[in-house]
């Protein structure tokens, strides 16, 4: 088949899941005729109607809370939060209700929150954030972040079929990328399995979402310099595949973690700490982090580019770590 964009892959996968399971329905702002802010749901209303492709008013706490209630009662809602920044409005419902249902009440909550995230589009500080860190330390919420077209389909299916609340992070810069796939939907992958995107022996680069895509590009550059980076795409932050990360760290003995988000209090810090607990004695240098400065995401193209951890800066940081003596 001809290459499809990530957006098309997500759309076709949603359509397949809607056809497969009548309990699945979509809910979010402007997901109907408009097709969602980034066009992921465009056209779905024609096949599935306004009941299952449910436009909502601008009420994140209201419709996320309603989705949780519907999920507990037997539905499988897939909610779109137009920009991840807006998920802050629904944090109460997710943290205080959805995340507690299994542990306290022994109830399943098969809810998916899809949300476009990240910078690179010049949208400014309230439309560009990666806020998965707000949920990373909250037990009870799955977090998945595809970096490829195949995984966008695979993880979306796994998320919809999981009995727990799952945040599916869709990076805006990945939407227009095209992927050669044999078929869509792709086979689902279990949540919690990292993907070794590239084998290497000189250092390990750990990333997720757009940064994982950029890390692969950086690794290709480095290969021309005879630096072999092993790139691990987390795919899932919760559960975290720490075994795969630790095994790679033991092998390469040098680890760089890349995060689109402020350096302080980030997910890279937690992963680094877990690796130090497990493989400290095998490492030649402490785990290194490449993250954004501790400032909001600025809007000017030049300023935003200066804070985004793209392939060039990943390559530079990886080169520095790989060649350190």
């Amino acid at each position: 088949m001809s290459p499809l964009t990530t957006t098309q892959i997500l759309r076709e996968t949603l359509a397949a899941e809607l056809r497969r399971d009548p309990a699945v329905f979509l809910m979010g702002e402007d997901i109907g005729a408009y097709g969602g802010s980034f066009g992921v749901t465009r056209g779905l209303i024609d096949e599935f109607g306004a009941t299952r492709i449910r436009n909502t008013p601008i009420s994140e706490p209201g419709f996320v809370g309603a989705a949780i209630g519907a999920a507990v009662a037997g539905a499988r809602p897939v909610v779109e939060i137009m920009f991840m920044d807006f998920i802050t409005l629904a944090v109460d419902q997710l943290v205080n209700m959805a995340a507690k249902l299994a542990y306290v009440y022994n109830q399943s909550c098969p809810l998916v929150i899809r949300t476009p995230m990240g910078g690179g589009r010049g949208y400014g500080a309230t439309h560009s954030q990666c806020l998965e860190r707000l949920f990373f330390g909250v037990p009870g919420i799955r977090i998945v972040a595809p970096a490829t077209g195949a995984d966008a389909s695979a993880l979306l299916q796994s998320a919809i079929r999981d009995p727990n609340p799952v945040l599916l992070l869709e990076h805006k810069l990945l939407y227009p990328l095209r992927w050669e796939l044999d078929a869509v939907p792709t086979p689902p992958v279990p949540l919690g399995q990292a993907r070794i995107a590239r084998r290497g022996s000189d250092l390990t680069v750990i990333a997720w979402s757009w940064c994982a895509f950029e890390a692969e590009r950086a690794a290709a550059q480095l290969a021309a310099e005879e630096i072999e980076a092993e790139v691990i795409d987390l795919r899932s932050l919760n559960p975290l595949d720490i075994e795969t990360l630790a095994a790679s760290a033991r092998k390469t003995r040098r680890v760089l973690i890349v995060e689109e988000g402020p350096r302080t209090g980030g997910i890279a810090a937690e992963i680094g700490s877990q690796l130090h607990e497990r493989v400290f004695g095998d490492l030649e240098f402490p785990v290194q982090r490449l993250a954004m400065p501790d400032c909001p995401v600025p809007s000017a193209r030049s300023l935003e580019a200066a804070v985004m951890p793209g392939a060039e800066v990943i390559a530079a940081a990886a080169r520095d770590l790989a060649t350190r003596v």
């Binding site: 329905f25 009941t51 706490p61 209201g62 419709f63 996320v64 809370g65 309603a66 989705a67 949780i68 209630g69 519907a70 999920a71 507990v72 009662a73 037997g74 539905a75 109460d92 419902q93 205080n96 209700m97």
Partner: peptide, 15 residues
Amino acid sequence: ASVAFAAGLALQAQL
């Protein structure tokens, strides 16, 4: 907070 949850129960009842 439970009023939103209740709206979801009602939505599923309707669906």
